[in-house]
Amino acid sequence: MTNSSLAVRCQNVLKVYDTGGQKVTALNGVNLDIAQGELMMLVGPSGCGKTTLISVIAGILDQDSGCCEVFGEDLLSLSNQKKLAFRARNIGFVFQAFNLLPSLNAAENVSVPLLINGIKRVEAERKAVAVLEQVGLGNRIKALPSELSGGQQQRVAIARALIHNPKLIVCDEPTSSLDHETGRNVMNLLKEVALHQDRTLVIVTHDARIFEFADRIAKMDDGHIIEVNKINAPDNLTPELI
């Protein structure tokens, strides 16, 4: 596989937290490549470094050493301003706790990434309505997060992650706050609407019920990737990634 078809390339990534004088190694030389158009799941026990790894991949946390390239950009070498702009353009987020702004309605929440990218409010909300229709919430555009069920809130969060057409979507436990059926619906939605050949999904999860949606699953423990399993990866995904 060529570098140009890689969405993420992590090489020997190290991250140590200093928690009150005690050093905790969260990532201990992580090597991982993720192809464009792939749905990669990161799994492993609590504290194994999954969340730290997607934070580094998403450019919201700097590693201490090693290299993490996202679409060919070494995020550590970018200035803060460029990194912000890179995140705003290329990365979508889906969180376990949804993290919708409670005082904004669904359409306003979805329009936030466009506003950050400098799009006018009217135009951003018009697009938000279209994306909400795409995720099946066309009839709840004025609803506040508190008026939506957990599944609906997660669909709003997915719409928010999609609206600016990012190349990478990082999801942190997107189904763990949801019941089984709603979780599957959310995963179906992510797979159908979010995933395509130009967009990569990286999902951190504990939820074994959704492993079947992954193209590949990277298992982590103690700050390392200990194995990468191919689940639904098509044959044209290069074997060396597995």
Binding site: I60, A85, F86, F93, F95, N99, P102, V112, P113, I116
Partner: peptide
């Protein structure tokens, strides 16, 4: 603070 954190993660600058 968490809401500001979300905005920051999504690319909002400190100035904004």
């Amino acid at each position: 603070l968490r809401q500001f954190g979300v905005l920051k993660a999504m690319g909002t600058s400190n100035w904004t």
